[in-house]
Design a protein around this nucleic acid. Structure first.
Lengths: 206, 206, 206, 206
DNA sequence: CATGAATGAGGGTTCATTCAT
DNA sequence: TATGAATGAACCCTCATTCAT
């Protein structure tokens, strides 16, 4: 299930993509400010640059918008992560680079991440499935990076848990910024979390 | 700002407390199921065992209910944590015990924690302040435990960050249960996270 | 299924009855003018003398209003017919009296009858069942009157068909008034239809 | 006022006729299922085999469609009736044949007749005039058949009323089918109604 | 002639809140 | 104190109609 799984009465698929990206952009801005429930469809339409009628040519319900937003955010992170993983290869240093790159992305996407955390309950069950699947894939990327860059150091389960920890520490920079940003700069945060991580790696080679 | 800071037209303070705890209990049940926005005040009144009119004798607005709920959940965690910290003292083993106790509490309060994460945006600004202050205190408890049980191992900043990490890892067991509970039992989760933590502590030997 | 089968959030049943009769009265007036679809719930509320919010305390949906109206109209006819049948007994003259009384009622309820004919399609399936059942009862009343007032003259099936004919001839005075009222007064209409009917009765045996 | 009285921006009249008959066919199917109000213009366009834009090249408003449908149905009945009347001549037996033929047509056009009964209110006033005029003509055909096939038996007024009765008895087979079809086959219905009619004819004097 | 994207008025319904009893 | 009927702003969504291509 991806974007195209949401029905539209418009035939021109290029146009669908264009309009939907307008919708997504507008909605993210609005959801940041007021959350999904407090944002009205009219506001979304207006901020997207067209009428309420037009909005409903590209979605079927307000909940579709939420899914579009989730998918878009998740996708951006996914692509970033995938690229980072591909670039770096097979050494523990490189794992550090991946984390660094991921945390920096999180810093760029703070508000988006907060949306992810706050509106899950409003996602319809079937859409939630798709979204969580994507999350699993992302954690999977980190896990594989862990396993391949430091073989023998982690069991499969340990890698799984560690990947989750890293993934969430990225988010945490966003949803706890009210306290973290008071105490740490991004650079510090990255450095310190990485430091903890390195310490944990038992006896780096002789 | 605490419970009593929410105005009520009722004079009898014992009654206020009783009614409010009915409201909180009912609301938590409802918010678990449908979230704050999808729960109506009528439902809250009914589940609380009295009429909508009576509900509004004990709160001023629906958002007051959310605050009461937040405060109640936060308080429960706070008290538990405080007690755990007090009981254990001054050795690194004891820190492990605190974490263990905290993670078990999180397991008991899964849905409550999820509420905390999902409805922050709906908290009014002034109430949000109170809530976050309490969170800071809780992280403070962990931080102090870290500092006092393993002196010289952590700088102040490191302790601050580590406390946040632990605090969030507890929550994570709740809000990522859709994937974590598939891969780990609670015992495993505690053990492995603790294990990571211990490895991270630089050279405790001798 | 009758009025009381429509759920309401109001507890005072006397009040329900009072408000619903306001709704019915207002709706009939409006439906006469513009039909069910062109009448808005807001108009119904206003004409009923209360707000839209109050309207929805007494019904669950606009279609409930239609059912209430159908039931009310059907009931009025039913009661009238029942009374007419009871009063008259066992002679062919009396059958004529019943018809006379029924046709006069139809003349009084022209617009109501037109509503019945025009909005059936909008009735929900389960409610349609209730409505048609009542119609069957009414035709049954006429049929029994036929059978008992002129025994041996009609077979059961003949009585059934004749009862339907009479029933519809009453309605016809309403829904074909655009032509009938130009050519006939009510008195004439009754007299002539009755006359046809009498002629049809085979050889009133001397 | 007939079909051609509805304006169109298209010049080619053959095309107009072709497209409009597509519209009528599609609309009747849809109106049967969901009624006029619940059918959207988009649905009509789609079922007609062209786009919404094209639909509006051949009509000015949705109500025009209803008129086209009414006119088409009425016309079909009219033509059938006219032909039946022409074929049969000047004997009472022949009147029976006309009725027989008319009732059988009604059986074929059940749903169409139901549309006629249910959507009158939605016809615009001027169009309603045209439609009713056609109905008058049809009743006129029956009336003339009555008068000419059994001269001296009916006064003008009696013939008028009887013609209306017969006309409506045909419709009744449609709009009361939920009860009539349970009790009578079409053959029985025709036979019995005809029988009643014959009995009414005073002593076909030798 | 045909298309279909765009429009926005308006419809049904919900629900937090009030206030007379 | 407790009740629950009343309110109406506001929400989501539909759909007849237009017009540039």
């Amino acid at each position: 299930m991806d974007q195209s799984s949401i029905a539209s009465s418009i035939k021109d698929t290029t146009l669908i993509e264009k309009r939907r990206s307008q919708i997504i952009k507008a909605s993210i801005t609005l959801f940041k400010q007021k959350g999904f429930h407090r944002t009205t469809t009219r506001e979304i339409a207006k901020a997207s640059g067209f009428s309420i009628g037009t909005l409903y040519e590209y979605i079927r319900s307000k909940e579709d918008v939420l899914f579009l937003v989730y998918e878009s955010i998740n996708n951006a992170v996914y692509i970033h992560l995938k690229r980072a993983v591909k670039k770096e290869e097979t050494s523990s240093q490189n794992l550090i680079n991946i984390i660094d790159s991921y945390f920096r992305l999180m810093d760029d996407m703070q508000e988006e991440v907060i949306i992810l955390y706050q509106e899950v309950k409003s996602l319809q069950e079937d859409m939630k499935g798709t979204v969580l699947e994507k999350e699993r894939e992302m954690v999977g990327l980190l896990k594989n990076a862990l396993l391949s860059s430091m073989p023998y150091l982690f069991s499969n389960k340990e890698a799984e848990l560690m990947a989750n920890n890293i993934f969430v520490q990225g988010h945490m920079w966003c949803f706890r910024r009210w306290t973290l940003h008071q105490n740490f700069t991004l650079e510090e945060y990255i450095k310190m979390q990485t430091h903890f991580f390195e310490q944990m790696i038992p006896v780096k080679q002789t």
